[in-house]
Design a protein around this nucleic acid. Structure first.
Lengths: 237, 237
DNA sequence: CTTCGTAAACTGGAATACAAGTATCGAAAT
DNA sequence: ATTTCGATACTTGTATTCCAGTTTACGAAG
């Protein structure tokens, strides 16, 4: 049986896909997509894990059709690699792709910061998100800060009237988030630092200094580089 | 029969899809995707054209399965809108989406210019593309200049070591290209002007002036705005 | 004549069945 | 013993079939 080997030791696929609950009343493909994406990002599906459409479909109790739709989107984002008539697998962590994702994020989000410096902020919409961030930062709870951070950046894109740009950022963000998840547990005080970054960016925006806001945003996004990427350099396919 | 009406008068779908030739020896879905995308961009499939999967599949002599894969990608890029259980149609021209696409292009490509100002250019790879541009510009042949322009921008992304970023730009570029196709025939000397823009950007890059290069690139990309978008403001769905 | 209800038919979504291609494993020959 | 050739089995890709939801059209009633 020419199944792709290199399954990371006694790794149980069923366990990794345990918590997949499908709401049959809603479109299935996006649900499968989100479930797989989340599991790839947080490491429950490590790089190199073979993705056999039949197996996954059976484990998730869905047919191959919606699964394939999800797989195609995943492949389009570079999260899985699929060789026709051979098989698919979770894409290996690739430094070049990671740096590209970082490039795209900084390019788009720094431009968003620049624009907001001209157009101004919607402080009313910002306040609740900031308060949640402050709370998470105070408790140094990076797991929830992770989610609130997402909210924050999305809100900025919405305020800049480019929600579609945020959609695009999300499609590459997975590669950044994979690294962030690796680093999450090891760093202390990381939430507080990120929160500080946010406040600095906002201050520059309020001051109307577009260049400064863009630079601070770039630095904030690239701060993930500070915590040694190389340490986690895993094996590539 | 609850088929989506509003077919643009006596518009023949079969004629618009006349030149679709499928190479059965290669994956079908990408071929269908490219064919439809091109026809939407160049106007052969006008905004609002209903896309009935059965009809299209029959006209292209393929099954619905690969067609649906193409449609999903098209929908993801916003080129077609699909209401579940109702039907799909070519997306209407949307000024907001167009401006967003422009925003993303300028954000990424100006950043590419900035980076190249630091890292330098690969003049050897650049030369042939430039010569083709000059030739097209001299003949004021905007149709072929259109293609060479594509090459140029892609080459810049490759030289900046972010080919994936270009892939992302392409996914939004369709919305910009739709406008460009509208304006193509009406403007004279447009190729020469665009070529001049390119030379200016390259000069700034060679001079190592990142800010200037970024600004020139932004101006070049946004030059499509000069030729009155509003003139072609079509009906929205 | 207008409005509401019902039914039919078309649509997209999912599941199943079929075809083509490749890598692996084994056997045979050198 | 090693290398090469062939068969087998598993994979993705494509086609076909089936199902459920929604909309529109038609008819009846007020």
């Amino acid at each position: 049986m020419p199944r792709l080997k290199h399954v990371p030791l006694g790794f149980d696929l069923a366990e990794a896909l345990a918590g997949v609950r499908i709401d049959r009343a809603q479109p299935i493909a996006p649900q499968i997509y989100r479930a797989l994406r989340q599991r790839i990002v947080d490491g429950r599906l490590p790089a190199g894990t073979p993705i056999h459409e039949n197996d996954i479909a059976a484990l998730c109790l869905v047919s191959r059709t919606p699964l394939r739709a999800a797989m195609q989107q995943l492949a389009n984002e570079g999260l899985v690699v699929t060789r026709p008539q051979v098989g698919s697998a979770v894409a290996g962590r690739d430094r070049a792709r990671f740096l590209e994702a970082l490039f795209v994020r900084t390019a788009i989000e720094s431009q968003i910061a620049r624009r907001l410096a001209k157009t101004g902020l919607d402080e009313a919409a910002l306040a609740p998100v900031l308060s949640r961030q402050e709370d998470a930062a105070r408790r140094d709870d990076y797991a929830t800060f992770f989610d609130v951070d997402e909210e924050f950046h999305e809100l900025l894109a919405t305020m800049a009237r480019v929600p579609g740009a945020w959609h695009l950022v999300q499609s590459v963000k997975a590669h950044v988030d994979r690294e962030r998840y690796m680093l999450m547990s090891s760093i202390r005080g990381r939430s507080a630092r990120a929160f500080g970054d946010h406040l600095a960016v906002l201050a520059a925006i309020r001051a109307g200094d577009g260049d400064a806001a863009a630079g601070l945003m770039t630095g904030h996004i690239e701060s993930v580089l500070d915590e040694s990427f190389d340490r986690a350099e895993g094996p590539l396919d």
